[in-house]
Amino acid sequence: MRKMPIKFYAFFVLPTAVAFLISFLIPFLLGIYLSFTEFTTVTNSRWVGVDNYVRAFSEDIDFWNALVFTAKFAVVSVALINAFAFLFAFLLTRKIRGANVFRTVFFMPNLIGGIILGYIWQLILNGILINFGVDITFDARYGFWGLVILMNWQMAGYMMIIYIAAIQNVPPELIEAASIDGAGALQTLRRITIPMVRPAFTICTFLTVTNSFKLFDQNLALTAGAPGRASSMLALDIFNTFYGRNGYEGVGQAKAVVFFLIVGLIVLLQLYFSRRKELES
């Protein structure tokens, strides 16, 4: 079907397109415009040029702080989540009895919402820290590692499912051939399994990096940025700039544009590197 009468085309496309226009496209373009203005509502904006962008970085260290916190968090949690997820997947594909039960258990936290997860772990971590006379909001480092633990608990099972699918796709002949050639378990893992599941590594890295950067609910529920704003990540810092202080709406919108550019850059870099890897192999 190369062509379709316009009335049918409209019938198929309009409902989604109109909803998309209202909830995404217009707000997105308006958001870029407003980041160059001073405003409290959409209708009373006044052009101020790049002022908001300058203020976002110069007025206080919150944004820098959130940026560094988020970047560090992304690096640590991406490494740990993928290591755990691959370990779980590797063990569960060893013909273990009850593998399905373990898979069910490890995946379950992924379905629970971020706010709920945050309060579950607040209880557990504070229950441990109280023995040392502190709580999770005592130091930003506690909030950092608390979030890392929480995100591992939530995401490792998800990534494990993707790794299991990839490991099960490795042709058994390859493993057999390796064992006939006298390869040990570790050698088989290093020389065959890991190279064969490389596409899964790419997908999981992509998912964990973008999830870590966009993290909001868990951050809000676990520490709400405390102490002060020291454990705020980018998304929470932008939210607080918008809704926590009067007269900072423009700065908040400018921070949001910078946030968008950072996430967009990460996505582009990953697409570029994964394409290049695919071409090489």
């Binding site: 209202i22 909830s23 707000p27 997105f28 958001g31 949001a256 544009v257 968008f260």
Partner: peptide
Amino acid sequence: SMIVPFQMVMFTMSKM
């Protein structure tokens, strides 16, 4: 639209 973080549009979208 998949790569745009929610914070980018949250204010303008809720006003809309």
